[in-house]
């Protein structure tokens, strides 16, 4: 007998709320929808659960191939794709939760720092962003975790993004607990170390784990121009949910004045992506001009 999907959805969110120690009906305080129906319905919380910490792995190859230096231990800079994805999520949180964003990064990555005009292109308003740099030192990991905990406990923060590499089960439990008490929504951005089971990152207490990697961009009017930003978003693990993978793209990354609502969308299942179908063109951002400034 086919179950009513809406009933299932309601039950799932009830159970999720009970699991988090909370109760009552879900509101925008309780979850952050991605705005893509297929994904939001697949997730047990109707989006990314608030009062929880989510892990997002950088699926692209590291920007620095030196594996022995200190950046591996305390976290080097992340790739553009995962940064853009997190910025897009943070922008969503800024709008739906109407609260500022805190982004915590090790100071050592200041040479590849966040760039506000680029973040704005993914819907994150830099005016409501507080960037925290953790200075290097002996207690680097502890300080970074402390900063994230403080931010998760603060009730006026919409989303906390932290680039923290070293994370064990205890530390992630502490973060999860801080998120539950403060109702904060945390994203842990980490680099992926390996895809097979043996070398994969050890499990954490985060409620979900994603892997984000760049995909070749969407189609454009001229085939040699980069089109819309696209990601391979893999849900590797979700508490109360099943793993799955999607191909996402970002609609209207800012440079056009099109009326397309800005946000995530699933990559349309085209056979040949390099040729835009006429039906797709309405959903796409109008093709960019090749210009010389």
């Amino acid at each position: 007998m086919p179950a009513d999907p809406q009933l299932l959805q309601r039950l799932r969110s009830r159970i999720a709320a009970i699991e988090r120690g909370g109760s009552g009906s879900p509101s925008t305080d309780d979850y952050l929808p991605l705005g893509v129906t297929e994904i939001d319905e697949h997730l047990p919380w109707g989006g990314l659960a608030a009062g929880a910490v989510h892990e997002i792995l950088d699926g692209d190859a590291p920007t620095s191939n030196s594996t022995s230096n200190s950046t591996t231990k305390i976290g080097g800079a992340l790739n553009g794709a995962v940064t853009a994805f997190a910025a897009a999520l943070a922008g969503k949180a800024q709008h739906t939760r109407a609260r500022p964003i805190v982004w915590i990064a090790p100071r050592i990555t200041a040479r590849e720092s966040l760039y506000a005009p680029g973040l704005a292109g993914f819907g994150l308003d830099p005016a409501d962003l507080i960037a925290v740099r953790v200075p290097p030192g002996g207690d680097f990991a502890a300080t970074a975790l402390w900063a994230m905990e403080e931010a998760l406990r603060a009730p006026t923060v919409g989303l906390v993004c932290a680039e923290i590499e070293a994370l064990d089960l205890t530390a992630s439990r502490r973060l999860q607990l801080a998120a539950e008490t403060g109702g904060g929504l945390g994203l842990l951005l980490r680099r992926d170390v390996g895809r097979d089971a043996r070398s994969a990152l050890p499990p954490t207490a985060c409620v979900s784990r994603w892997r984000i990697a760049a995909l070749p961009g969407g189609p454009s009017e001229y085939s040699n121009l980069p089109g819309t930003t696209r990601w391979q978003a893999e849900l590797l693990r979700a508490r109360g949910g099943r793993p799955r993978s999607w191909q996402l793209e970002w609609r209207n990354d800012g440079q056009d004045n099109s009326q397309t609502p800005r946000g995530f969308a699933l990559v349309p299942p085209l056979r040949d992506r390099s040729l835009p179908a006429p039906t797709e063109a309405t959903g796409e951002a109008p093709a960019r001009q090749r210009r010389t400034a």
């Binding site: 720092s113 760039y115 680029g118 292109g121």
Partner: peptide, 21 residues
């Protein structure tokens, strides 16, 4: 400081991460 400052939206796409040097 940000209120009323220059708007961020660039006319051309900009990267979310910039190399300091």
């Amino acid at each position: 400081p940000s209120k009323g400052a220059t708007p961020w939206q660039p006319p051309q796409p900009r990267p979310p991460r910039l190399l300091a040097r």
